[in-house]
Simulated scan of single mutants.
Amino acid sequence: MSDQAVLLVGGRGTRLGALTADTPKPLLPVAGRPFLSHLVERLAGYGFCELLLLTGYLAPEFEAFQADWAGRGVTVTCRVEADPAGTGGALHLALPDLAPEFLLLNGDSLFAIDLADFAAPPLPPGVDGRLALRAMPVADRYGTVQLDQGRIVGFQPRTPGAGPGLINGGVYRLRRDAVAHLSSFPCSLEADFFPKLAAAGRLEGRVFDGYFLDIGIPADFARAQADFAPGGQAVNGKSTKE
Rank of each mutant, 00 (worst) to 15 (best):
residue 4 Q to A: 00
residue 4 Q to Y: 02
residue 10 G to Y: 10
residue 12 R to D: 02
residue 14 T to V: 11
residue 16 L to Y: 11
residue 16 L to C: 05
residue 20 T to V: 00
residue 25 K to A: 00
residue 26 P to N: 10
residue 27 L to T: 05
residue 31 A to K: 13
residue 33 R to P: 05
residue 33 R to S: 09
residue 34 P to Y: 05
residue 37 S to P: 05
residue 37 S to C: 14
residue 37 S to D: 15
residue 41 E to V: 06
residue 43 L to T: 10
residue 45 G to P: 12
residue 46 Y to V: 01
residue 47 G to C: 10
residue 48 F to D: 14
residue 49 C to N: 15
residue 50 E to K: 06
residue 54 L to E: 02
residue 57 Y to A: 04
residue 58 L to G: 09
residue 60 P to E: 15
residue 61 E to N: 07
residue 64 A to H: 05
residue 66 Q to P: 06
residue 66 Q to L: 08
residue 67 A to R: 11
residue 72 R to E: 13
residue 76 V to A: 12
residue 78 C to F: 01
residue 80 V to R: 15
residue 83 D to P: 00
residue 85 A to N: 12
residue 87 T to W: 11
residue 87 T to E: 06
residue 88 G to S: 13
residue 88 G to M: 09
residue 88 G to V: 08
residue 90 A to H: 12
residue 91 L to V: 06
residue 96 P to W: 13
residue 99 A to Y: 06
residue 101 E to Q: 14
residue 102 F to Q: 12
residue 108 D to G: 14
residue 114 D to W: 00
residue 118 F to Q: 15
residue 123 L to R: 12
residue 126 G to H: 13
residue 127 V to A: 13
residue 128 D to R: 14
residue 130 R to E: 07
residue 143 G to Q: 08
residue 144 T to R: 13
residue 147 L to I: 12
residue 148 D to Y: 01
residue 148 D to N: 05
residue 150 G to L: 04
residue 150 G to Y: 01
residue 150 G to E: 10
residue 152 I to C: 00
residue 152 I to W: 00
residue 157 P to V: 04
residue 159 T to Q: 15
residue 163 G to D: 07
residue 163 G to C: 07
residue 165 G to R: 13
residue 166 L to E: 03
residue 167 I to G: 07
residue 169 G to P: 01
residue 170 G to T: 09
residue 173 R to P: 02
residue 174 L to G: 06
residue 177 D to F: 01
residue 178 A to F: 00
residue 178 A to E: 11
residue 179 V to N: 00
residue 180 A to I: 10
residue 180 A to D: 12
residue 183 S to A: 11
residue 185 F to Q: 01
residue 187 C to F: 03
residue 188 S to A: 02
residue 190 E to C: 03
residue 190 E to R: 10
residue 191 A to W: 02
residue 194 F to E: 10
residue 196 K to R: 14
residue 201 G to C: 00
residue 202 R to Y: 01
residue 202 R to Q: 14
residue 202 R to E: 12
residue 203 L to M: 08
residue 206 R to L: 09
residue 206 R to A: 10
residue 210 G to N: 07
residue 212 F to H: 13
residue 216 G to L: 04
residue 218 P to V: 12
residue 231 G to A: 10
residue 235 V to G: 14
residue 239 S to E: 11
residue 239 S to Q: 09
residue 242 E to N: 12
